[in-house]
Design a binder for these strands. Structure first.
Lengths: 315, 315
DNA sequence: CGACCACATGAAATCGATTACAAAAACCTG
DNA sequence: CAGGTTTTTGTAATCGATTTCATGTGGTCG
């Protein structure tokens, strides 16, 4: 059955009918054991519940299925995430890893398992250029976001930052600072508030801004969910967006266009990230691509102007 | 290693050191082959990108991981979904199925594979009571939603319905009709508009309502996303919620509380659905529960009153 | 007609964990 | 210390697909 061309016509047909009669199905466990490959890829993401990641996962599953691979998802990893992930390979449950979680010690991951398990990472700020990666132009996109606010006449600009990893500062924060510097705008420490990409942290950021002596006239949020949390809490306290403050988000999740006000944001090509990362990984697994030179794909984000940003009154 | 108690203390230690020295890891493929079980469960859902399902999936992964199971997700199924799913079992890739997709021919599924593959379903309107299921009280919850609108003084009430399956009418629609009947309210056909649970269909529903000769004063949407799409499009056309029309949703997805207006909705216990369904399935797989009597868990939904519903002016 | 080649088929080894069973060692007890 | 029991250890078969190698066809050509 695995090589029908090597068998005579007659035998081939006899096999066919036998398959139908007995209802034969290939036993994947046996095949995995013999071939030492599972035809399965593992995905690690920090919270599948997050709409950003779930869209990516959707694309991953679609592509993987089309190419005959199963998709395993892993949840919160325990004490030793690297060990946890690499065990999937050593135990022959998965052939490759799609890593969407930047909060792992990638250095250690690469050292421990990088050579033994094929992986494609899709998150910002990769410490190790040897890892195959599909990323977006976070830094530039952040600059573009600030540029947009600047173009609208805003000079007092705040930021809700995403979490920084170990030693690496958050790329969007870096882009924010860079743009502010280039426009010779003052960066007030109290206008940069740390968040964790959840709506709740957007709510909290709003509380913080409300407590400031002076509020910025525009705020760049490192993702849409925090922007939404921010706008909602501000509104509950009488501060309207975009009347009193302009807000720009990041990602363009599906609610953003139906939010009130519709959210101005930097759109990230989520399907594309998932799709390309998966294609790349499977190509590597099937030897289409030589594993010597790491793949590095950079995708472009796009400014989507909607209602949540408005020209500074009197500018 | 599988039964350390049957071996002498000395040998146990010798094994331990050998494991550490050689870096031995159990080969799951070999174990699967021998034991005829994969320690993996398969989940089928209609669109992982949907925030409703992704929250459930999150819970599934958490529970499964804790109990030592992997989670495979499957995407859009082809021509023969039932065959597709049952192949996962016949090929020994998964031990059980968590079915969150009500759009399958469950009758056929059960006939084809029900006896050979353990499954727990978590969606409404189960045609076959023999299937293990974890569901919510959709009908009652829909009635409760209408009741809330009624209590607010609304009498002209519309509905955005979810899709109906084959022969079975949508349960929330049935609940809507039932409540309307019991309150002796008129059900206008043009006020019941079909949707597919996406925001876009909420947008479309809004267009529809705007074209009606007379608009209802309150609308019950079969899920939050459609409610959000509805409110957004209405607002763009000068119809404000809740000033001009009250809207109640269903599910309580995470944006709902940060939407403007914050959405009144029937909260579904999503984590609980995922958690209990997974626990149930694994219990069945491990023989804790006799597979003779089907499990049927019904969870309660809860009314969450926020800003999107208001008393009828002049009532 | 024998030598040779292409092709088709059959048999056996392999992947690694589990399990049943046999063999051997250790332990009692009278 | 013999006879019997218990514990421990070793051996071999099994799961199902793949792959290698040997055997067996048929056909061609010198």
């Amino acid at each position: 059955m695995s090589s029908p061309e090597r068998v005579s016509e007659a035998t081939r047909e006899r096999v066919q009918t036998a398959v139908l009669e007995t209802g034969y199905t290939l036993n994947q466990a046996a095949r995995s054991l013999r071939l030492q490959k599972a035809k399965t890829i593992l995905t690690a993401m920090p919270g599948i519940g997050n709409p950003f990641y779930s869209t990516i996962l959707d694309a991953v599953v679609t592509v993987a299925t089309r190419r005959g691979y199963g998709v395993l998802v892993t949840g919160r990893l325990g004490d030793d995430p690297v060990r946890w992930l690499s065990d999937y390979f050593r135990s022959n449950r998965a052939d490759g890893l799609l890593l969407f979680d930047g909060f792992l010690d990638t250095r250690k991951l690469h050292r421990t398992a990088g050579d033994e398990m094929p992986l494609v990472a899709a998150y910002d700020e990769l410490p190790d250029p040897r890892i195959n990666s599909v990323i977006t132009d976070n830094l530039q996109a952040a600059e573009r976001a600030v540029q947009h606010l600047f173009d609208m006449g805003h000079r007092k600009i705040g930021h809700i930052a995403g979490p920084s990893r170990n030693t690496f500062p958050n790329e969007r924060l870096v882009g924010f600072r860079k743009a502010m510097f280039e426009h010779r705008l003052e960066v007030r420490d109290e206008w940069i508030v740390p968040g964790d990409y959840t709506m709740q942290s957007g709510n909290a950021a709003a509380e913080h801004f409300l407590r400031c002596r002076e509020m910025p006239t525009a705020i760049f949020s490192a993702n849409d969910e925090m922007a939404i949390g921010l706008i909602a809490t501000l509104r509950r306290n009488g501060v309207e967006c975009p009347r009193d403050v302009s807000v720009i988000g990041f990602d363009d999740i599906s609610v953003s266009q139906n939010y009130a006000p519709a959210l101005t944001t930097m759109r990230q090509p989520r399907e594309e990230i998932g799709r390309i990362a998966t294609e790349t990984l499977i190509n590597i697994l099937e030897g289409t691509r030589a594993p010597t030179d790491p793949v590095r794909v950079v995708l472009k984000s796009e400014l989507v102007v909607r209602e949540s940003t408005a020209p500074l009154p009197g500018a």
